[in-house]
Each structure stands twice: as structure tokens, then as C-alpha cells.
Design a binder for these strands. Structure first.
Ligand SMILES: [Zn+2]
Ligand SMILES: [Zn+2]
Ligand SMILES: [Zn+2]
Ligand SMILES: [Zn+2]
Lengths: 125, 125
DNA sequence: TCTATATTTGCAACTTAGTTGCATTAACAA
DNA sequence: TTGTTAATGCAACTAAGTTGCAAATATAGA
């Protein structure tokens, strides 16, 4: 349903995304903020921020959900569609501002797709 | 470590992949085969069949692991690299035998990537 | 075919990510 | 300032997957 009240909890969660440019997992936030916020609160806030187009989420190879800041989305239009890159050395996951286009696929009509890439990031090369 | 003995349990699991051309989740096999095999046995067999290059696995959008038959892999060489397509109507997930190529990505060195696509399949169009 | 041995299986208990119901707390509009 | 309603904390729960160990079984060699 999206965020209605700008509570302290919401600010605390948003601060984590301001500090970090990389994607953050729900689990990581839960341990990171364990002294300040309850687990359920964090999951619920992430959910709402996604509804509002403030964050977007994707599934890591490990089956753990991660969140990252959206660039140009809002409550009604979610346009962020880009690959995510995980460095196999440092483990960080970043949004890539590049366009991946699919070839024609006979017998199927495509409505959306996700690309997840592994390799080494600039710092670890 | 891969399969060493061709047990009945292994045959039962392989039969499910012979019957189905679509990808199958571990959870689905566990419920489907609940009268014949134990949960742990199924997870362990899937793991070994993947090591052997008989099956490959990937993560669904729901964070549930799925398995599908490999075409040309074996114990030493895993070459299967293709997108997976989930129909939003019937829910079935299929391997697509098409090639997706990435654009050049500056500052990153790519070693592997996965593509997961949503849309409608031939039967549901 | 029989037997020894090592692999595989079942079971129960555990871990980890995420969810839910409900009573309490806190935004915020009036 | 206060009443209303959203947001929070808590504890208990679900669901996917893992693990240790004792019992079962596949297979190689006698
Ligand atoms: Zn790195
Ligand atoms: Zn992103
Ligand atoms: Zn379909
Ligand atoms: Zn496949």
C-alpha cells in the first residue's frame, strides 16, 4: 500500500540506502539495524518503499532478496529495468545502467526479464 | 560429489524429469514423491545430478530453486547457458535454446550471467 | 552366490528467510 | 491538544533447505 507516515523507522531504513550505493539484502538490514528496529518492521518498510517506487528488489543467486534505490520510479510508474552485477571477490551487488536487449523468441511473448551477472568489479580487478 | 550408485531413488527422481519437459522445483518433487522418497534424499540426489551435469539449477523469482535437464553437459564440463522463461498464466518454466549476448560493460569483467524472462507461452497465448 | 564395505537413505531435529495476528505506540490532521 | 489510524514490536509461525546419525542397500570381490 505504500508509505503513509514519515516515521523514524522509515528514515533509519532510508539512511542505510543513502550510505550505501550497493544493493542491500533484507537480512543484512535486519542484523545491521537489530538494535534500532524490529525484523517485521524492516520487511514491511522495504515492501512499502518498493510499492512507492523508491526501492526496487531482485532475487540473488542465493535466494535472498535484495533492494536498491530506484532512479526514476514513482508510485504509479516503475521503469527501472537493468541488470544487476555481483562481484565474486567482494560480494557487492550493483545496478548496471546499461541496456540488455533480448533476441526474438519464437512461440513466446515476453513482458519482462531480469539479468543477473557475475564477475569482478573495478575495485577487485 | 556426484552419483556413485544407480539406486532406485535416483531412478524415481530421473523419471520425473523424463515425464516433464519443464523445469521442476525441489519443493514440487518433495510433495510429488512424498510417499516414495524422503525430503533429504531428494535434495541430495538433485545436488549430485547437478554435479554430474545431468541437471542444472536456477533460482525462480520466488526464491525457490528449480532444476531442468542439461543438453550437453557432463561431470567436467557444464556448458548449458540459456535463459529461462516463466509463463505468467500457466506458471510453467522452460529452458530457451536461444543466445542472449550482453553489451560491453565498462569497469566490470563478466564471467557468467543468468537471464530470467516472464510472459506468455505458446499454449497460453 | 555370498559377504564385506562403503554409499545411500530415512528420520528427526535444526537453520534461515520471511510472514502474521494482535496489542501497544506514535504520526498527524483537525 | 487530542482522536483517529497507521506503524511498530513481539512472539509465534511457515516454508525451504540442511545436518548428524543409525539403518538399509548397492556393488565389488571372494
Ligand atoms: Zn568487488
Ligand atoms: Zn537495480
Ligand atoms: Zn503458459
Ligand atoms: Zn535451463
Amino acid at each position: 500500500m505504500g508509505i503513509v507516515r514519515k516515521t523514524q523507522s522509515v528514515q533509519i531504513v532510508l539512511d542505510e540506502f543513502r550510505k550505501n550505493s550497493t544493493a542491500i539484502s533484507a537480512v543484512h538490514l535486519v542484523t545491521q539495524l537489530s538494535t534500532k528496529l524490529n525484523k517485521s518492521t524492516i520487511y514491511r518498510i522495504l515492501d512499502k518503499l518498493e510499492d512507492d517506487g523508491v526501492l526496487h528488489s531482485f532475487m540473488g543467486k542465493d535466494g535472498v532478496k535484495r533492494y536498491a534505490k530506484c532512479q526514476n520510479c514513482n508510485k504509479t510508474t516503475h521503469t527501472d529495468n537493468h541488470p544487476h552485477f555481483q562481484c565474486t571477490i567482494c560480494g557487492k551487488i550493483n545496478c548496471l545502467q546499461v541496456n540488455v536487449s533480448l533476441p526474438d523468441i519464437p512461440d513466446y511473448s515476453v513482458t519482462s526479464y531480469q539479468v543477473f551477472i557475475q564477475g569482478k568489479c573495478k575495485e577487485c580487478l
